[in-house]
Design a protein around this nucleic acid. Structure first.
Lengths: 204, 204, 204, 204
DNA sequence: TATGAATGAGATTTCATTCAT
DNA sequence: AATGAATGAAATCTCATTCAT
């Protein structure tokens, strides 16, 4: 019967995740109060403190959670492609996946972009996905090996590309500055390819 | 004698800028209260509201102010160079100027990076600097013309490079993630050059 | 044991009622601050907002509360009379009860008169007093029936008389304008009787 | 040339009257700030204090001013009637004049009713009207004499009637409580006539 | 006389956190 | 483990009044 209690706890935690996620997206982190979060989760105020130290603790754990899911989705998306695309195509496909995802829900973009650091990020990418085969980061590395791509600094390459994509999304999608994402996308693709070459060309 | 009043007002506004700048850098935006700001500026609480609507209004105006100054500095810095460098060298020089500036004062980096949007940015770059020669953006455009560089999307190019630099500074300088800036810099330079080519090569 | 919490809440609310009542009477509504109210009630500032939306909300609820009590007193007072007085005598008795009550505590008069509307009033009169005998208004109606008084508009009659009494009290007791209540009382009685006849004569 | 200065001062004072009148009616006394008043009057804040001690001083003077004008209007209105009406008809005519006036502008009613005392009132009625024949109160007395009406307490009679009318207007016009003014008016008329008789009958 | 920038006490309100139940 | 009433420090913002110009 102890299992039931354990399940119950996980349910409560998830309720708090879901509730705070909605509120952070809709009203922003600093305008969301703990009272709001527990109310929406249907729990009492005191209960919050049984699961999280404070609002910041919740936020950090939430971001890791969300980011992990997002890359998991990206990963699944790539798998759905019929053939084995080459590496460059794979990267651009994932880039476009993120763009579409963020255009669908710009609030998600705002929340993640304002709060993400490479540390949390890198962590989320390598996290063991329950009942799944391979986490994103390992997959990324294996792909390069498989395709005989020589890259001495694969992490720096990934970092550079991801930063480029997320900066661009933030500015072009949320503010349409300096141009809309539709207009910027061809240039973004070119820039990404150029960066790929920077990191792989020399080693070929 | 009306001038004296006007001067006085400018002094007060600047006092609030300086005071809030220090506090935002040292304790962060949300932990800085208006009481702190006016106290340090040596003014009364009500005075704050004669100059700014609220803390957010102050922040936005402060960021535009600071960013403008920063690019002004970058501009001056480039002028100080002995010879006429080529365009690529100019860009890398400015990149390194920002890196140095932010390594000197990471708090400045943190404050700006979390709050800057390309909109404010672009504005700050083109703002008429009183009693000054040329704002940064105009200078940038003129340089390209002078050096016979063909670039159909100079603004997108600038945007891409600046986003790349600021993302990299944020992550490498503030968190040393994924690596230190010292380690990342050569790759950053290469990426910047690659992007320059994306935007100029085709038109040559 | 949940009852204890519930009781405690009622006590707190009453403490706020009592404390604000004293302060409103002694210093007036607008000069009384919430800080004053909670201090006197021995509670924390935040506690106030658990019970009332703001000072205005408290005032309205307090007035209804007080008015209800006042009519309850009047009701009790009438019952204490030895014999069954006729209707006219009853009305004058109640009139004099109010006059005495307000001369005893003119601050009460000032507070109520400035803030009472017939809406709140009417509400307070008929409010179901839990575990109490009969609210004033119902008693008033029953009395008329009992005494075979025909009155097609009993509410308008009551309204007219009460307004006359409260206006007179306000002016004569608080400001002795145009004359003292002692001097005005006989005329007030005559006016009340005249009004009673207006509403009942035609139907005889 | 001194006259010009004097005129200027009167103009400013009137500007403050007009501005505060509008604001008190529209937003209520306590929600109107001195800043609002001077802004609308097109004057500087300091100027306010050259004419009034504070907001309360302004309010009291304004009320007297308004009330005087109102009775002046009522007076004019009565004069416009073709024939010499008898006294009772005159009183009901004036009653209806006030009702119409207040139904036209209920905000005026609210402002006056909340702030008027018989003292200010009586004063306003007797004030020497510039360039006019007789102030209201004197006219009222003369009328009774003229019509051979014996009334030992004319002021108490006037007081009682006016209180009755203003209470009724306040409740029936502003809140339609207990009924609309349209519905209440016949009863109000009857009550007024009954009161007239109380004060005059005995002396006939 | 007129101005309006400056004041700063003080009002309202919020909210993370605690703790008795 | 769960609750939610209570806390009270602290934050924002208002506004009557003053006073140097």
């Amino acid at each position: 019967m102890k299992k039931k209690v354990e399940e119950n706890k996980i349910q409560k935690k998830n309720a708090l995740f879901r509730s705070s996620f909605d509120l952070f997206l809709n009203h922003g982190f600093s305008k969301t109060t703990i009272a709001d979060i527990v109310k929406r989760a249907g729990l009492a105020k005191g209960t919050f403190y049984l699961y999280f130290k404070d609002k910041y603790d919740l936020r950090d754990k939430l971001i890791a959670h969300i980011t992990g899911e997002l890359f998991e989705e990206a990963h699944q998306h790539l798998h759905r492609e019929p053939d084995h695309p080459d590496f460059e195509t794979s990267v651009l496909t994932i880039c476009d996946f993120f763009i579409d995802r963020f255009e669908d829900d710009p609030r998600l973009l705002r929340f993640i972009a304002k709060n993400l650091s490479w540390g949390i990020f890198r962590n989320a990418l390598s996290k063991d996905v329950p009942d799944e085969d391979i986490p994103f980061y390992r997959h990324y590395m294996e792909q390069m090996e498989l395709l005989h791509i020589r890259c001495l600094q694969p992490e720096l390459m990934l970092f550079t590309i991801i930063e480029l994509i997320s900066s661009a999304c933030y500015s072009c999608i949320l503010y349409r500055q300096p141009v809309s994402m539709e207009e910027y996308k061809p240039y973004l693709h070119q820039s990404i390819l150029a960066i790929l070459h920077v990191y792989t060309e020399a080693e070929k």
